[in-house]
Computed example of a mutant assay.
Amino acid sequence: MLPFMKMHGLGNDFVVIDSRRTGALPDAATVAAMADRHRGVGFDQLAVILPGDNADARLVFYNADGSFSAACGNATRCVARHLMEESGARSLRLATDHAVLAAEDAGQGLTRVNMGAPVLDWAKIPLAEDLDTLHLPIDGDPVATGMGNPHMTFFVADAAALDLESFGPAHEHHPLYPQRTNVEIVQVVSSDEIILRIWERGTGITLASGSCSCAAVVAAARRGLTGRRVRVNVPGGMLEIDWRADGVWMTGPTAHVFDGVWRG
Rank of each mutant, 00 (worst) to 15 (best):
S166R: 15
H151I: 05
F4Y: 15
A103E: 07
D242F: 01
G204K: 03
G52R: 11
L207Q: 14
F258K: 00
K6C: 06
S213P: 03
V48G: 10
M152N: 13
L162F: 06
V16E: 04
M238D: 00
D65C: 04
T251G: 12
I205M: 09
G66C: 05
A64P: 12
G66W: 10
H256C: 10
G224A: 01
F154I: 12
T203E: 01
L25H: 11
V230R: 06
R39K: 14
L127W: 08
S87H: 11
G9I: 05
S67C: 08
G168W: 09
F258W: 13
G146P: 03
A102M: 14
V156L: 12
E193G: 00
L164T: 14
T251E: 12
E240R: 14
S69H: 06
A144G: 13
I241S: 06
A89F: 12
W199S: 03
G23C: 04
Y62N: 12
T203L: 01
G9Y: 02
G252C: 05
G236R: 03
A99V: 13
G116Y: 03
G66T: 08
T96M: 12
D56F: 09
V188S: 02
V41L: 13
V143S: 08
P169Y: 09
F68M: 09
D56Y: 12
D246C: 09
A216S: 15
L25R: 14
M115R: 08
D246H: 10
D18P: 04
D36G: 11
G146R: 11
D163M: 05
D13S: 13
L94R: 10
V183E: 00
S190G: 07
A32G: 05
L83D: 08
T133D: 10
P142E: 06
L101E: 11
L101A: 13
L10I: 03
G11L: 04
H151C: 10
G264D: 08
I194M: 07
I138S: 04
P26F: 09
L25C: 04
L225A: 05
G202M: 00
F155A: 10
L25S: 08
T30I: 12
R39H: 15
G264F: 05
L25Q: 13
H174C: 10
E184D: 07
L162K: 06
G73V: 07
A32D: 02
R222D: 01
P150G: 12
G66D: 11
F61G: 06
N233C: 11
G237C: 04
A95G: 00
W122V: 02
R229D: 00
S67D: 07
A159I: 01
L59Q: 07
M115P: 11
I138T: 08
S87I: 11
D65V: 04
A32Q: 14
A95C: 06
E104K: 14
G109K: 12
V143R: 02
V41P: 11
T133Q: 11
L127T: 11
I241Q: 01
V79C: 13
I185S: 01
G202F: 01
A71N: 03
A35G: 06
D65A: 05
T96I: 11
P169G: 04
A215S: 04
A24Q: 14
L162Y: 07
D139G: 14
A32K: 15
L196N: 02
A157W: 01
D53L: 13
A144L: 05
I205K: 09
E200V: 00
V113C: 07
F155N: 09
A221R: 09
G236V: 04
G140L: 10
P235Y: 02
